Amino acid sequence: MPRAFYLMVLPAFVLFFVFHTIPVLQGIYYSFTDSPGYGPSDLVGFQNYIALFTDGRVLHAYWFTLLIAAVATVLVNVVALAIALGLNSRIKFKTTLRGIYFIPNVLAILVVGYIFAYLFNNSLPAFATKLGIDSLSTSLLTDSSTAWIGIVILAVWQAAAFNIIIYIAGLQTVPADLYEAADLDGASTWRQFRSITFPMIAGFFTINMVLSLKSFLQIFDHIMALTNGGPGTDTESVSVLIYKGGFQGGEYGYQSANSVVFFLIIVALSIMQLRVLQRREVSV
């Protein structure tokens, strides 16, 4: 390859190595220490990793994270695909609507999260009280059994925008001739979706599912804005726990081990998801 190629790639490689690779290697090193995040530390071997599997707070954080990720991934793809199908149909102002639907993706999630927190804590209970709906007369975020619902609502609302764009791009690759032939054969709308649309955009569905799950597994800003991990620690995700324990609780080494385990779990789930969905693409 020409020398100019290496000269162009070198700055990006150096930046990536300095700001990504080195911190990752440092994190792995600290995971084998008892470092509080400052001062001297000692090597403790695999003690941090062993302790993770008996720590109730850590196990609850993983369970809660998987719950949020699973529910939000399904909902965001259902919502995004439904909206994309509507925007891809013959409706007026669909170009403008595409721009409007993408707005949530460019807004700062913390700012939006505080707005949603106000709605959940004040506006929604006030409306529910006037309408006589007792189950919604108190904030969703103050009850550990319902706080996760508010987090899912915010996460789906914010993430749907990106998924919509991906699905619209996929729908535009489906030849119109297929729909015309299906209409001549008398195929219903649902039949056309099941036999033509969905199989043709299976690759885009795979992309959205994998990216959505990875993103929701790392959910952080939504929780910090809505509940800050509360009530108590009931809505702590793994990312929130790593942040609180590592940077505020003096558990830098311990939470470094947690972050390594979390990274491996995300990679494993992504690979499994890709293999299953890609196998389905082939069968379709």
Rank of each mutant, 00 (worst) to 15 (best):
P2G: 02
F5W: 15
V9T: 13
L10S: 15
A12Y: 13
F16N: 08
I22C: 07
P23V: 06
P23T: 12
G27T: 11
Y30A: 00
T33L: 04
G39M: 05
S41N: 12
D42A: 14
D42W: 08
V44N: 02
V44I: 14
F46H: 11
F46A: 14
N48Y: 09
Y49V: 10
T54V: 08
G56Q: 11
Y62W: 13
Y62I: 15
Y62A: 15
W63I: 14
W63G: 11
F64T: 03
L66C: 05
A70C: 08
V71L: 11
V71W: 04
A72P: 04
V76M: 04
V76N: 04
N77L: 13
V78P: 02
L81G: 05
A82Y: 12
A84R: 00
L87H: 05
K92Y: 04
K92H: 03
K94M: 06
R98D: 00
G99T: 04
I103L: 01
I103A: 00
N105W: 01
N105H: 01
I109P: 04
L110Q: 06
Y114F: 11
I115V: 14
Y118L: 06
L119W: 08
F120A: 01
L124K: 11
L124P: 04
L124T: 10
L124I: 15
F127C: 00
A128I: 03
A128K: 03
S135N: 14
L136D: 07
D143K: 15
S144G: 13
S144Q: 15
T146Q: 07
T146K: 10
W148L: 11
L154Y: 01
L154E: 09
L154Q: 03
V156A: 00
Q158L: 05
A159Q: 15
A160K: 01
A161S: 10
N163C: 08
I164Q: 05
Y167M: 07
Y167P: 03
T173L: 04
V174G: 02
V174A: 01
P175G: 09
A176R: 12
D177Q: 12
L178H: 09
E180H: 10
A182C: 07
W190A: 14
F193R: 05
F193M: 14
S195L: 11
I196H: 07
I196C: 05
T197N: 01
I201P: 02
F205A: 14
N208W: 03
L217D: 00
Q218L: 12
I219E: 10
I219T: 14
F220I: 11
F220T: 08
I223C: 06
M224A: 03
A225Q: 00
A225C: 00
L226A: 07
T227G: 07
G232N: 12
G232A: 12
T235M: 02
S239G: 01
V240T: 13
L241E: 01
Y243L: 08
K244N: 15
K244H: 10
K244G: 10
G245H: 06
Q248I: 12
G249N: 10
G250Q: 03
E251L: 13
A257W: 02
A257P: 01
N258K: 03
V261Y: 09
F262P: 01
F263H: 03
I266F: 03
I266M: 08
I266K: 08
V267E: 02
A268N: 08
S270K: 09
L274V: 07
V276N: 10
Q278R: 15
R279W: 11
R279A: 13
E281Y: 01
V282A: 13
V284I: 12
